[in-house]
Computed example of a mutant assay.
Amino acid sequence: MRTKRKPTRLDRVFSRLDREPERPAHIGVPRMSRHRVVLFGATLAFYLAIVWAVVITSWLVRLDWQVMFFRPYQQWPELHAFVDYYVVLGQRGPTAVMVAAWLGWRSWRQHTLRPLLALGVSLLLLNVTVGAAKYGMGRLGPHYATEIGSNEMWLGGDIFPSGHTANAVVTWGILAYLASTGRARRWLSALSAVTSLGVGLSTVYIGTHWLSDVLLGWAAGLLILLALPWFEPLIARAEARILALRHRRRTHRGRTAPAPVQPAGAPVVLEPPTGHEETAAPEPVPTGRAPSRPHVYLAPGPHTTRAERTPVTPGGSRRPQHAERHPRGATSATRP
């Protein structure tokens, strides 16, 4: 007796994906609500407070030096192999490729370019804002510190804020931003926050960043995610222009398609001219050979034989000559 196999969780996931409609209407575009504006203002204040605390060499800088002298990679050396792999979740290249692959499949599935365009805008904002802050403040990392207790600012460094932490917040947080349901958005937001903080603490464990770098990088990435609704009109216009350009290219390609070539020997029918008077349609003229000549009627009476006539072609008769065959002109025959 054959029993029916019980569907697994993976089977249920794929069945839900198969039932997903094209361009689902229930996915709303996030707007800049009052709650989001409050969060953006609080995060911006937190960002400026960290920068000010590092600039004036406050207790945060002293905490940075204490953590650096603690050397976590020497306290827990058994975690070093795991941290080396975990910190890759904050590198821009691998994470951008993975997230872009998922969002590209989702764009193809839902017939919309919004997921990929939102990812592109967020990464562009990340490069501009975080890159400008890095090179503008020029802070040196723990491995290149010059003076104990100093904030190491404006010395040509590029580690403040932490790029790994900010990149982890943006690349994994964009999945929560584009989630289709509120429950999925909450779970993905918590997961991206924990992942990004873990990536930042991994850089502190290795010794490539100060603790304040991680806090500022986390705030910088969160500011980008909170500001994305302001760029939704730009994303919508870009999507409309790209789709319109694709439509024009398709129509232009259809207009410039080559006309069908008629096979040799097919009759070409000439249509009568359009007008008030009806004209008889001419007979079809076969292509590939000239029209036949009109028949010539000879007058009745005696005429010469075929052998005595002038050959039609310059080369004479096309038949080969045979020695045993008598020429036709040997006996003259007259038509009665």
Score class of each variant (00 low, 15 high):
L201G: 04
E147K: 11
H26G: 11
W76T: 09
S212L: 05
R325I: 07
A190H: 05
G221K: 09
W172F: 15
V38N: 03
T195P: 02
P291N: 14
P24M: 11
W108Y: 13
L39I: 01
G136S: 03
T112Y: 00
V38Y: 01
L140P: 03
T274N: 11
V170A: 01
L243H: 13
A118V: 13
Y73M: 12
R139Q: 04
T287R: 14
P286F: 07
S189Y: 05
L79A: 11
S317C: 07
I235V: 14
H252G: 15
R246D: 13
P273G: 12
L89K: 04
A333N: 03
F69I: 02
T331R: 09
S202T: 03
W65D: 01
R114P: 00
L201I: 10
L60D: 01
E271G: 05
E283S: 09
H209G: 00
Q110H: 02
L126Q: 11
L103N: 08
G182N: 09
P263F: 06
M98R: 00
R36K: 08
A299S: 13
H326K: 08
Y86R: 05
E324C: 06
M68E: 11
L17G: 08
T304G: 14
R241D: 15
Q66M: 12
A236V: 05
T95N: 10
P300L: 11
A299C: 07
R246F: 06
S122T: 05
G141L: 06
F70C: 05
S332W: 05
